[in-house]
């Protein structure tokens, strides 16, 4: 099962290249240039990890987009892409539920590492949910299953 990644950045040159590089790493990657487009995309498909630029022109900036994404897809892990001037915003973003932040210009290796960590966490989370669902499914009165 391939990892599904959504990249949100208004810098189109950066966006295109990063999408291609992640694709080459075997990730299913989609790129969009605004928060609004990102919200449309997450309604079409489920994403494991979302790379989100904090500073974007237009109506919706990174933090607004983050709030929307978290309310619509609470299980998707969000990694914030930030410049020096927006470190405080990133900290605020983590309080709002972002997984971590990466300082731009980010090294690709670092980015991949962060995506991997986020995906692991997401997978863990999914696993727990799956287990809970199974427990729910197999719970019958009078019968006891082992926890693991």
């Amino acid at each position: 099962m391939e990892i599904k990644v959504l990249v949100v950045d208004d810098e189109i040159d950066f966006l295109e290249t990063i999408v291609k590089r992640l694709e080459k790493k075997g990730l299913h990657t989609v790129g969009v240039t605004s928060g609004e487009d990102a919200l449309i995309k997450i309604q079409e498909k489920y994403y494991d990890v979302i790379l989100l630029d904090i500073k974007m022109p237009g109506g919706m900036d990174g933090l607004d987009a983050l709030k929307e994404i978290k309310s619509k897809q609470p299980l998707a892990e969000v990694i914030l892409l930030t410049g020096h001037g927006t470190v405080e915003s990133s900290v605020e973003g983590m309080r709002l539920g972002a997984f971590d932040y990466v300082l731009k210009p980010a090294k690709f290796e670092e980015l991949c590492e962060k995506i991997a960590q986020a995906y692991m966490k997401k997978a863990d989370q999914d696993n727990k949910i799956r287990k809970a669902n199974i427990q729910q499914l197999l719970r019958f009165p009078g019968r006891v299953f082992d926890q693991d």
Partner: peptide
Amino acid sequence: AGVAHEINNPLGIIATKAGWMRD
């Protein structure tokens, strides 16, 4: 701060493009 911000973005793109070429 202004100069750094303006330079940071193209630097990011150069780095990414270089990375893509390496790939």
